[in-house]
Design a binder for these strands. Structure first.
Lengths: 123, 123
DNA sequence: CCAATACTTAACCAAACGGTTAATCATGGA
DNA sequence: TCCATGATTAACCGTTTGGTTAAGTATTGG
């Protein structure tokens, strides 16, 4: 949908940031960071149904943040690292820029109520 | 919804990650990183309507990533830095853990097809 | 084997998303 | 003044999301 052509990388970032955009899923990540767990075990602290947890795990798995592996009759969940690197790369790219360039600029813009223009066509 | 009580910080992270989960919005951020722009100007490269862009800006603004300020009859958009720090903090927290602890663990788990149990109740 | 345990899939639902077009508001130049 | 320009609001629409309950699948202990 939307922009006509969405690249593979776009889709990956979509999935990763979407996965991180829900507090329950972030809590699942926090739980798994303390050690891998079976689904039912993992679901215990959460006040929602098991199928709901299962779906959250789907979302996390699609984003490449979590993997499930059958172990006997349990389905053990554990975190995987790679996906976060992409998310981090995106964020740090702009964060670096903002902290070096934008903080002062923003301060300037806010300080001067009606800031004069200039340099707009920097592109 | 969901977990009964969602903290302020949860809500902020929800908003930030949600804002970042759309490729169009990430492109808007990329555009604005090259310099602040009026809405219509900003919308030009995008194959969607102006109201759609306006809504995306709402989302980015709610997340604290962008601010709009009227300047004559233009509405100038610029990035704001603070919100990304939160997102970064969340990611880096787990990224650090993963890269130091999990990479080997994952490798181990994958290497041994049916990894023996043990240490399950580590929590 | 077979029943209990551990999940997942299916079907459904209300609300949120991302987009549209049309109408409205806001501002500045002629 | 008034209208053209810039942008938001309103109303609508199909799809996705996050949840539910109920039914189905998989595995293993008895």
């Amino acid at each position: 949908m939307s922009i006509a052509k969405e690249t593979k990388r776009d889709e990956r970032l979509d999935a990763i940031f979407h996965a991180l955009s829900d507090a329950t899923r972030r809590r699942i990540i926090a739980e798994l960071a303390r050690g891998s767990q079976a689904v039912t075990e993992l679901a215990l602290p959460f006040p929602i149904s098991l199928p709901a947890i299962s779906k959250h795990l789907d979302v996390l798995e699609r984003a490449g943040l979590v993997r499930r592996a059958r172990e006997g009759r349990f389905q053990r969940c554990h975190l995987t690292a790679a996906a976060l690197d992409d998310a981090s790369a995106f964020i740090e790219r702009y964060r670096a820029y903002w902290h070096t360039n934008l903080d002062q600029l923003a301060a300037f813009v806010e300080a001067s109520a009606t800031p004069a223009r200039a340099k707009k066509a920097k592109k």
